[in-house]
Amino acid sequence: MAPPVADFVLIDKSDRTLTLYTAGRATMTVSGIQLGDAPEDHKQFEGDERTPEGRYTIDYRNPNSAYYLSLHISYPNAADRAFARAQGRSPGGAIFIHGQPNGLPGADAGLRMPGDWTDGCIAVSNGTIALLWNAIPDGTPIEIRP
């Protein structure tokens, strides 16, 4: 059954959960999310393979990405850009919630890449991202906690 349209998304990196909220009530929780290759700490620089932490928004969607559906997270924000600039580095970007790589054998049946494998994105099964695609409108706030 599809969840109602969300007005807030909470990612808990340590618990490996993604929870949708509607009017302050949790309506769907996804366990076992996959993160960047270096899942601890906040993303600071391009190539650090960390998943960001903080408050952002889902600002657009890409139905034609290299992964099965993708919802863009508005990282980097002004503070992220300022910090990276002060270090003479790029903050990186292109952080999404997405499904498995296109063409992954068995992905339509729920198979997933093992472990943490993204470059900082949040990955879920293809079936889960199909539900999230319909439940999370553009402009939805998202908080990513350590």
Rank of each mutant, 00 (worst) to 15 (best):
G99R: 09
I122M: 12
A135M: 05
R112V: 03
A123H: 09
Q34D: 12
W117C: 03
F83G: 04
E40S: 04
F96N: 11
R85G: 03
G92H: 09
A23I: 00
I58W: 05
P63L: 09
E46T: 00
G120L: 02
L131R: 13
G115Q: 12
R50I: 01
D59F: 02
A78L: 11
N134Q: 14
K43G: 00
A86I: 04
L18R: 07
Y56P: 08
P76A: 07
R61I: 03
R112F: 04
M28D: 05
A38M: 08
P76C: 05
A38T: 00
A86V: 02
P63F: 07
A123C: 11
Y21A: 04
S65F: 11
D108T: 04
Q87H: 15
V124T: 12
G24E: 13
A109Q: 15
Y56H: 01
Y21F: 04
G88F: 11
A130K: 14
N126G: 07
T29C: 10
L18W: 11
T29V: 06
T17N: 10
T19F: 03
D41G: 01
F45Q: 03
E40L: 04
G47L: 06
S90W: 13
L132W: 08
R16Q: 07
Y21M: 10
G88M: 14
G36I: 01
G47N: 06
I33V: 07
F96R: 06
T128E: 15
G115S: 14
S65C: 06
I95N: 08
D12T: 01
Q34R: 13
A38G: 00
G93A: 07
A78C: 02
T22K: 13
Y67H: 15
H98N: 13
D80I: 01
